[in-house]
């Protein structure tokens, strides 16, 4: 059994390359058919806002990478309910389908389920 990896993505999409580089780890893991989960936490939930205009900040759109997740076999997608609520991000308007909204206790259990964890 391959070891499972949970990537916790905590950075806003346009705060530098961190969010993109975190996503690259996940996509690479998916490409190798590894069991991989992705949790959007803290400012990371802002990556899931729909209808972002990347060009307004001279950036490349991150949402194409997000939409690629299922194509790479990454289907274990999670978002922190508290982080979303604090930032006014409505869980029913997220840019990704099939994201599981988790409370703090569920997140603790989630982290426990994975063999390895990377937080970026």
């Amino acid at each position: 059994m391959p070891k499972s990896l949970l990537l916790i993505s905590r950075q806003a999409p346009w705060s530098g390359p961190s969010a993109r580089e975190a996503l690259d780890i996940v996509l690479a893991g998916g490409a190798f058919d590894l069991p991989i989960g992705l949790l959007f936490l803290d400012d990371g939930v802002l990556q899931l806002l729909a209808a972002q205009d990347a060009r307004a900040v001279q950036q490349k759109d991150l949402s194409a990478n997000l939409q690629a997740l299922p194509l790479f076999g990454v289907e274990q997608l999670f978002v922190c309910a508290d982080s979303a609520a604090e930032r006014g991000v409505a869980p029913d308007t997220l840019a990704l389908d099939d994201v599981n909204v988790l409370d703090a206790a569920q997140i603790a259990a989630l982290i426990d389920r994975y063999d390895q964890v990377i937080t970026l």
Binding site: I25, A28, F32
Partner: peptide, 9 residues
């Protein structure tokens, strides 16, 4: 990045 995943495994 495959080298990271390989090391994790």
């Amino acid at each position: 990045l495959g080298q990271l995943h390989d090391a994790i495994q």
